[in-house]
Write a protein that binds this DNA or RNA. Structure first.
Lengths: 189, 189
DNA sequence: TATTAGGTGTACTGATCGGTAAACCATGTC
DNA sequence: GACATGGTTTACCGATCAGTACACCTAATA
C-alpha cells in the first residue's frame, strides 16, 4: 500500500492553500509548486474541492494533535492544561509561518453552510470545543461544556486579533480572561 | 456635485462582496447585478482592488455607525453601553443577511499585510478598539485601553463562532464574560 | 447652438481558470 | 514476456478573469 504520492500532494497542497488562500491558488500553480503533474492530481481527486477537503482534514488532525499535545507538555493537570492552551497559541502566533486559522479562511471563502468545505471547517471548531469540554470535565470544573464554549470563543478571538491586530498580545490577553473563568468554575469557588 | 452613480455602485458592490466574497465576485457579475456598465465602473475606479477598498470604507463607517448608535440606544450610561454591545451583536447575528465579519474575510482573502485591502481591514478593528477605549474611559473604568482590547477580543470571537459555530449563543456567552471583566475594572472593585 | 461631462452597449484583449485527452514510461507481478 | 499500476508530458477544452477600445447617447452648461 503505497499512498506516498497522494500524501505528499495533500501535504504540500495544504501548505500552499494555507499560505495562499483557496480560490487564489490555481491548479497550475499547485502543479508547479508541488512538482506533481495535473493528471496525477486528478487521478487522486475528482475536483479541486475534494483536494481542499482532504487538505482541511489533514490540517484538522495536525492542528488538534499539535495543540493538545503541546498543552500536555506545558502542564501536568487538566486544569493547568486549559490555561496552557493560550501559551501554546502564543507560540503558534509567533511562528514565522503563522497565517491565521485555515478553517476560518475556508469559511470565509466558501460561505454556503451546505458547502462541504464549509462543513469541514465548522466541524473543526466543534471538535476543538468537544475536546476542551472533556478536559474541563476531567479537571472537575462546573458546567464543562459551557466553559469549553467560552474558552473556544476566547481562542478564536485571539486568533483573529493575532491575524488582524497591529501588535498586541492577544494570546496572553485571552489567557488572563481564561484564568478568571476557570477560577470561577472550580467547585471550591 | 452629483456623486449619485458612484455611491450607488459602491453601495451595491459592498452588498455583493459581503454576500459573495471578493475574489469569487467577477466584474461581469458586478455589471449584471448592479446594472452599471463596466465602462462606468472603470471610470470611477482604476482597478477592482480600488473598488473593494471603497466598499470596505463604506462598510467601516456603516458598521461602526450602526454598532455604536445601537449601543447608545440600548443603554444610557457608558458602562452599560459596553455591555449592550453584545446585545447589539446578538441582533446582528440573527439578521437574515448576516454573513460574518467582512473585514475578517478581507484579511483572509488578501493575507499580505502590505496589501492595501489588508490594511483597510486591520484599520477597522483598530478603530473599533479605540472607540471602545474611549467609552471605557468615559465610564471611569480602570485601564480602559486594556479592557477595550479584551472586549474587542470577545467581540471578534463571538463573530467567528456566530459564523462557524453550529448553533449556540456566542454573543450572550461573550456578554457574560464581558460583565465579569467590566465588574472587575470598576474602581469601587 | 456648441460643447462638455457622465453615462451606455458591444466587442474585444491576453491571461488564467478548472478539468480532460492521449500517448508515453517506468515499475513490479504473474 | 504479458500486463497492469501509477506516474509523466504535452496539448488542449470552453469558460471566465480583469481590464480596454470605441462609438454612441443624453442632459446640463456656456
Amino acid at each position: 500500500m503505497r499512498q506516498t504520492k497522494r500524501d505528499e500532494l495533500v501535504e504540500k497542497a495544504t501548505a500552499i492553500f494555507y499560505r495562499n488562500g483557496f480560490q487564489a491558488t490555481g491548479m497550475d500553480r499547485l502543479v508547479t509548486e508541488t512538482g506533481i503533474s495535473k493528471t496525477s492530481i486528478y487521478k487522486h481527486f475528482k475536483t479541486k474541492d475534494d483536494l481542499i477537503i482532504a487538505s482541511l482534514q489533514l490540517r484538522d488532525t495536525f492542528i488538534r494533535g499539535w495543540l493538545f499535545r503541546r498543552m500536555e507538555e506545558l502542564a501536568a493537570t487538566p486544569l493547568e492544561q486549559l490555561i496552557a492552551m493560550f501559551d501554546a497559541l502564543d507560540e503558534w502566533f509567533h511562528q514565522p509561518d503563522f497565517h491565521g486559522c485555515m478553517f476560518a479562511k475556508a469559511c470565509s471563502e466558501y460561505q454556503d453552510p451546505e458547502h462541504p468545505i464549509n462543513r469541514e471547517a465548522t466541524d473543526h471548531v466543534a471538535r476543538i470545543s468537544a475536546q476542551l469540554a472533556i478536559i474541563a470535565g476531567r479537571a472537575g470544573l462546573r458546567q464543562p461544556s459551557e466553559l469549553a464554549r467560552q474558552l473556544a470563543l476566547l481562542k478564536e478571538g485571539a486568533v483573529v486579533l493575532a491575524t488582524m491586530g497591529r501588535g498586541g498580545t492577544p494570546a496572553l490577553d485571552a489567557k488572563a480572561i481564561a484564568i478568571k473563568l476557570i477560577n470561577e468554575a472550580t467547585p471550591g469557588k
